[in-house]
């Protein structure tokens, strides 16, 4: 298969970026999207040019490192997969593909397609934990948890922190991401003790980082590679309301 690629190039955070055109030829349909970009980078090296920077690591859809806005969709056209799990058989021979970074105020571009998502880490640091020191934990079975609660907590905890929800949201809101963590703890007895403080601190940090507000368009859920449900946002709103009313 042959493709024309229009790729965002930007030397660093302050430089002006632009769309550049590249061609790749003879790509097998079993090649992954990132391997196709590897092939392009090999061409660039051969020509002595700087390679296109793009974040990636595990290439099996779980580390959350890869990103990319492909033809106007976060992680490309296929649903419920990350870019690294996208294969060229999802495209047609001769197609033009637009590749851009995840864009949001809170995700400044570092270089080319790489953005700085450390704002997401700072939200977790604000409250995405339980305060047990190592060694102080009670016996694991001392606290029974209903099977369905554990399963619901797991579904929320599956979030890989890639930021697709932010990139796809017209408001660049991080509500789905934050609510996944808040929900996980809301389902579990371990999370109850610090529930109020957690949701207030995480939401405050989300606002500080410059993420937008949620207007319930639901785009985040559609583009989430892990299928995190927007029901989590409803749950977080409830947690937030309760916490706001009861806090000093």
């Amino acid at each position: 298969m042959d493709f024309t690629l229009k790729i965002w190039r930007q030397e660093n955070a302050t430089a002006k970026g632009s769309q550049q055109e590249y061609k790749v030829k003879d790509i097998s349909s079993d090649t992954s999207f990132l391997e196709m970009l590897d092939a392009l980078n090999q061409q660039l090296v051969e020509k002595g040019e700087d390679v296109i920077s793009f974040d990636n690591d595990c290439r099996e859809g779980v580390c959350g490192t890869c990103s990319l806005y492909i033809n106007g969709e976060a992680h490309g056209p296929k649903k419920l997969v990350t870019t690294c799990q996208l294969y060229m058989r999802s495209f047609t021979d001769g197609q033009t593909i637009y590749i851009e970074p995840f864009r949001a105020n809170a995700f400044p571009v570092i270089k080319d397609l790489v953005v700085d998502r450390s704002a997401l880490d700072r939200i977790q640091q604000a409250g995405g934990y339980t305060s047990f020191n190592t060694g102080s934990a009670p016996e694991a079975n001392a606290m029974p948890i209903a099977k369905e609660d554990a399963a619901a907590a797991f579904d929320a905890a599956e979030c890989i922190g890639c930021g697709a929800c932010v990139a796809t949201c017209k408001n660049a809101s991080a509500m789905l991401y934050v609510s996944a963590k808040v929900s996980q703890f809301a389902y579990l007895p371990q999370g109850k003790v610090e529930a109020a403080e957690r949701v207030l601190n995480m939401v405050a940090q989300m606002d500080t980082e410059g993420f937008g507000n949620c207007t319930n368009t639901g785009a985040c859920e559609v583009e989430c590679p892990k299928g995190i449900s927007i029901k989590n946002i409803a749950r977080m709103n409830r947690e937030f309301m309760c916490a706001s009313l009861t806090s000093e």
Partner: peptide
């Protein structure tokens, strides 16, 4: 330790 952290193990 992991359970205390809220790791959602199968039940």
């Amino acid at each position: 330790q992991c359970v205390a952290q809220g790791v959602p193990f199968a039940r």
